[in-house]
Design a protein around this nucleic acid. Structure first.
Length: 581
DNA sequence: GCCGTTTTCGGCCCGACTGTTTTCAGTCG
């Protein structure tokens, strides 16, 4: 799992923090931050690159390339070691406390010798911060509050939880008199896999009524900050929500600004500066005259900068600006492109709803095809048998006859599949002759996650080489916030998928989103095809598709990359794979 | 420390809110 890139990125992120804390050049700190991001997201493994290759990574120049080489050779970077020697690791940890940044952390360390969250808590209780310049009673309170947040969950939440809150707030605020426009922005609009806080943007002449309604919502636990243009609250579940109110004629610039990402915004503002313009949330202005040029729509803002409108899911400074300037933005997959779901369960195994209900719900969603893929016998707790599976197939064929003929839309074809269990050797539940009876096979790893890297890699490659396995389900098996992904040689796995015609799943469940956006970008370079599936265990889960599609967009996928956007005939050819029959 | 249609030096995004410092620094996004 851990590419050298991730280690180097973490090291440079730490170095950037240490530079800030020690009062070093802020621009230098920012360069290291940017380099850390570029390296972490770079497609090639840095351990395979020489100094020249390293310098092709954006934001990596001579000095940083040398540090990468030093790290790869010796496992350490002397410049980082020097700063580490000056500042205990606990001081950097202090900056993780909300409202406490590098300046205050350094003051606490230098004046009071505080180098851990525990020591800071004690010092506040002993009133030792009182004499420190810049630290008053309110600051003490804010820090204690921040520590409490840090120590409770305080972390990022899954996308579906954030989406529920955001859609609720937008609905409430949209009803307020004077609210001209209202939507969610930020990382949620970019459909990141986890969300730190929810950003809501509204356009109105007068912000008063919106701010009042917002702070009086029933699930508001505390008002963190309140002003005329910005108010922040925290919900009873601990999620922070920011509301910004802008004048209606600033809507486009504001939406662009509050959607981010920060890195994308820095790039767009730089583009503006180079054209003698200034971009802020209030509009795009001529620097000399101060006159507003555009800001009513996002399209206007991007167009004036020489860019096409860039879909929010691409706004991460991962090459979208360059692609936009060259007119080479991808034609991203949309949820409406999806023709069917290829990984779903019923109550025959661990699903909650019976076959008939799942199929009816799928038809309601307008799918052209739909695969039932219950678990196979080797996941012992599911008590699957050959007989039960064959009986289900018979029922699926009956329903297929029914739904295939139905007049509404063009009918829906049902596929009978299975989710096989990839055992520690890469084998699966059934021999070829039984597998041949399925319309498609998903195969996934459900246990033995901690095998040696070589064994894990062999396991996946062997699964790909099975002529009956069409899709690798939730490939890294991660559970966001709970279980890391497996440590296989993903280059080898992705290459095997491409070579054998095995698709990789983008599992849409919010706690998986597996593959992740970065893995998708990586796999696509190998020429892999993908399947965006819900892995639904209930009717409600079918709606998770939007998150899988969002993740695919973040991985720059087009319709053609995703097999379940294809017409059924093309899909069937793909599913035949290397089978001889 | 990186970068370049203002290219080898001199810039490097911009604004809101908070608390304490009576005019601004720190933090955040």
């Amino acid at each position: 799992m851990a590419r050298a890139n991730d280690e180097v990125a973490a090291l440079f992120a730490e170095y950037a923090d240490l530079i800030s804390i020690t009062g070093g050049d802020a621009f230098k700190a920012r360069v290291y931050e940017k380099a850390a991001r570029s390296i972490g997201g770079y497609h090639a493994d840095v351990s395979t690159l020489d100094a020249k290759g390293l310098k092709e990574i954006p934001n990596v120049g001579k000095s940083i390339a040398e540090k990468v080489v030093e790290y790869l050779r010796t496992g350490r970077v002397s410049a980082v070691e020097e700063l580490r020697a000056k500042i205990p690791a606990g001081v950097r940890r202090l900056t993780a406390i909300p409202t406490l940044g590098p300046k205050k952390a350094l003051a606490l360390y230098e004046e009071l010798g505080i180098s851990s969250v525990e020591e800071l808590t004690d010092a506040i209780h002993e009133e030792r911060l009182r004499d420190l310049k810049g630290f008053g009673p309110r600051t003490e309170e804010r820090i204690l509050h921040g520590i409490a947040l840090l120590q409770s969950s305080g972390d990022r939440v899954l996308i579906d939880a954030a989406m529920d809150v955001a859609e609720g707030v937008v609905e409430e605020l949209s009803r307020v008199t004077g609210c001209r426009r209202c939507t969610y922005a930020g990382s949620l609009r970019r459909l990141r896999e986890t969300i730190g806080d929810v950003d809501i943007l509204t356009a109105a002449e007068d912000s008063g009524p919106l701010m009042r309604t917002f702070t009086e919502l029933p699930y508001v636990m505390e008002v963190i900050a309140q002003g005329t243009t910005k108010t922040s609250i925290r919900t009873t579940k601990g999620l922070a929500v920011d509301l910004r109110v802008v004048p209606p004629d600033s809507w486009g610039a504001a939406l662009q600004y509050f959607t981010g990402s920060k890195a994308h915004n820095i790039r767009t503002r730089e583009l503006a500066v180079h054209q003698g313009l200034k971009l802020s949330e209030y509009g795009l202005f001529d620097v000399e005259s101060g006159e507003k040029i555009v800001s009513e729509t996002e399209e206007d803002v991007y167009a004036r900068l020489g860019l096409p409108w860039i879909p929010p899911t691409l706004r991460e400074d991962r090459g979208e600006i360059e692609a936009g300037l060259k007119g080479e933005l991808p034609d991203l997959i949309e949820e409406s492109d999806i023709r069917g779901d290829l990984h779903t369960h019923t109550d025959l195994t661990d699903g909650l709803a019976p076959l008939e209900e799942m199929v009816a719900a799928a038809a309601e969603r307008g799918h052209a095809y739909y695969a039932i893929t219950d678990h196979a016998p080797n996941l012992y707790m599911q008590r699957m048998t050959d007989e039960r599976m064959l009986a289900q197939r018979e029922r699926v064929r009956e329903l297929d006859g029914e739904y295939g003929r139905r007049g509404k839309r063009r009918g829906m074809r049902l596929l009978h599949g299975v989710e096989l269990n990839i055992d520690p050797d890469g084998g699966v539940d059934w021999p070829d002759d039984f597998l041949a009876g399925f319309d498609l096979c998903v195969a996934s790893v459900h246990s033995h996650f901690n095998q040696e890297r070589e064994a894990l890699t062999r396991r996946f490659v062997r699964a790909c080489e099975n002529p009956y396995i069409n899709i690798i389900g939730h490939p890294t098996t991660r559970i966001i916030g709970k279980r890391p992904g497996i440590d296989a040689d993903l280059d080898a796995v992705f290459a095997a998928c491409a070579r054998t015609g095995t698709a990789l799943e983008i599992n849409s469940h919010p706690d998986r989103l597996d593959l992740s956006d970065e893995h998708i970008l990586w796999a696509k370079r190998h020429g892999v095809k993908f399947a965006i599936d819900t892995d639904a265990h209930s009717v409600l889960h079918l709606a998770h598709l939007r998150y899988g599609v969002g993740t695919a967009q973040r991985g720059w996928l087009t319709k053609d990359d995703v097999i379940n956007t294809w017409p059924q005939a093309r899909l069937q050819r793909f599913l035949r794979k290397g089978r001889t029959a």
